[in-house]
Design a protein around this nucleic acid. Sequence first.
DNA 1: ATACCGACCTGTCAGC
DNA 2: TGCTGACAGGTCGGTA
Length: 277
Amino acid sequence: MPELPEVETIARGLDERVRGDVIRSVWLGEKPEPLKSPAPEMAAALGSARIARVRRVGKHIVFDLERGLRSAAAKSTQQNTQWVVHLGMTGRLLVASPQAEIAKHTHAILQLASGRELRFVDPRRFGRLAVHHGGFAAPGAEPLDAGFEEFAALFRKRRTPVKSALLNQKLLSGVGNIYADEALFRARVRPRRRAARLTRGELRLLYRSLKRVLQEAIRAGGSSISDYVDADGDEGFFQLRHRVYQRTGEPCTACRTPIRRVVIAGRSAHYCPRCQV
DNA sequence: ATACCGACCTGTCAGC
DNA sequence: TGCTGACAGGTCGGTA
């Protein structure tokens, strides 16, 4: 489901709603697939921890946890622990009242001191929950923070299609199928072009297009396709501004040529055969 | 070392 | 109506 703009929207919403709340107790579902850390360890790490902050790292939602330690000295020496949630394709994190019906495919529930619950729901179970100690970092560069030279260096020597390079989380964290296609369209570059073969001018345009499309999408609250909603259950509306993604056969917004769909490394790629070279 | 491809899951929708 | 197959926002691990 979620790429950088959606995860950013969800993380901001969660930060507003649960920052400062304390986790009273934890329920983890029977089927432990989504757990990257063992259930007892996760329950122990979460139980009675205070949520200091919720933020996005790549496509991950990171909950910074604090223990209820009294002295500042004790606080400064405590191990910093994070609860890291990856939503996969269909994962959702919802703040709910305990009376609210428990949705099918609910895999984790955190009971909060404020009386509310934080629920993790994920039909396809591609999502992952993990506990980290001592600082969580994504492997790739943050597309919104990276400078142009850093960005350009990622593509040098890569013979893979530029679309695959954009999706590679070890290079850039947070770019998924929607925004890779949309950035390539705005940069007028075909998805199958070899990354290393892009000219410096094309790279610069791609760099700017990617930043712009991600920022625009964050402002729009993300793209809602089928089931994406933010922490408040509201839909984003950036899907209305997709120019190529899932528009196969529809006219290009620039030249009216039908949008084409191809498969690259097992993922669909959408582009305008006339505008993109 | 690098890059593709199937596997992991469930749900939905189009076509027959 | 019901079956089948294609497809879906992501990431792994095995293989070439």
